[in-house]
Computed example of a mutant assay.
Amino acid sequence: MRIVKLHTTDSTNDYLKSLAKEEKLEEDTVVWALEQTNGRGQMGTKWSTSSGKNLTFSVFRKIQQITIDQQFYALMAASLAVKDVLKKLLIKNVSVKWPNDILSDKKKICGILIENVIKKGELNAMIIGVGLNVNQTIWEDVPKATSIKSQTGIHFDLQEILNLLLEQFHHYVKMLLDGNLDTIKKEYEAHLFRKDKPSTFLNTNKEQFVGIIQGVTDQGRLILLEEDNKLKEYDLKEIQLLF
């Protein structure tokens, strides 16, 4: 494994993509930045953290054994890896807010962004970007944020947390490559935030409605049981969970 450690970069995902164009990357090349000035989340949202207090890194991984249609399984696997590490660190009430946020006590502690490398119409590799709040305890204009230190009162070494995460990523990558997709999906669904509970959502027309999260499709669409007792599927752009 190769780890490229940077003091500052705009985005570890973007840095890794540029690196992949310049050279043939070895498996599990990691770019880790102490400060990320233009970190991104799903749908172009920003990921902002204090310099040197949190983990912002990206991993390049060849993963040709799964298809483009199965790419959401990689996000599920990465979410479970983070969840496992947080539980090892005795973080309480860890859940996955669909599709890619990890929560502790209903507050965001981690975000994941996966970008695909497509070659000749097939999935060739993935860049897995992770932003994990570790030692930061104060946020401006982010009321629903928390960190490992906020939850435990303990100041952690970033390298140690990174090593734990990479080890757990390897565990789930092996599951992906071995074809244990059903196990990954069941585990992901079991830890979905607000699963099986009536919840309020906002649709694209800014209308609120009530639904009960049942799970996700293989492609990552959220399955809701709605008031008419019918199951409906939604993409990320179509609804927002209010909590």
Rank of each mutant, 00 (worst) to 15 (best):
M1L: 13
I3H: 02
K5W: 02
K5R: 14
L6W: 10
H7P: 07
T8F: 12
T9L: 10
T9F: 10
S11T: 02
T12V: 03
D14V: 01
Y15G: 05
A20K: 07
A20M: 10
A20P: 01
K24Q: 14
E27W: 00
E27K: 08
E27T: 06
T29V: 08
T29E: 03
V31C: 01
A33R: 11
T37M: 07
G41P: 00
G44I: 06
T49D: 10
S50G: 03
S51K: 15
K53P: 03
S58Q: 01
S58C: 01
V59K: 07
T67G: 08
I68S: 11
I68A: 14
D69K: 15
Q71Y: 05
Q71H: 12
Y73T: 02
A74N: 11
A77V: 01
A77D: 05
A78F: 04
A81G: 07
A81I: 04
V82E: 05
K83C: 05
D84Y: 02
V85Q: 06
K87S: 11
K92M: 05
N93C: 06
V94Q: 06
P99V: 07
N100L: 07
D101F: 10
L103Y: 10
L103H: 06
S104D: 04
K106P: 00
K108T: 13
G111I: 00
I112V: 02
N116R: 06
K119N: 07
I128V: 04
V130R: 05
V130F: 09
L132K: 10
N135K: 14
I138Y: 12
W139N: 02
E140Q: 11
D141I: 11
P143Q: 12
P143Y: 04
K144P: 00
T146Y: 10
T146I: 02
T152N: 04
T152D: 04
G153Q: 14
I161F: 02
N163D: 15
E167R: 13
Q168R: 13
Q168G: 07
F169N: 04
L176V: 03
L176E: 00
L177W: 14
D178P: 13
G179S: 08
N180M: 12
K185Y: 12
H191N: 15
L192P: 11
L192S: 13
R194P: 01
K195E: 11
K197T: 12
K197G: 05
S199L: 05
S199D: 09
F201E: 02
L202P: 00
N203Y: 10
N205K: 15
K206F: 00
E207C: 00
V210T: 15
T217M: 12
D218R: 03
D218M: 09
R221S: 14
L224Y: 06
L224K: 02
L225R: 08
E226I: 13
E226Q: 13
E227Q: 14
E227R: 14
E227T: 08
N229E: 15
N229W: 04
K230C: 14
L231Q: 12
K232W: 05
Q240K: 15
L241V: 14
L241G: 13
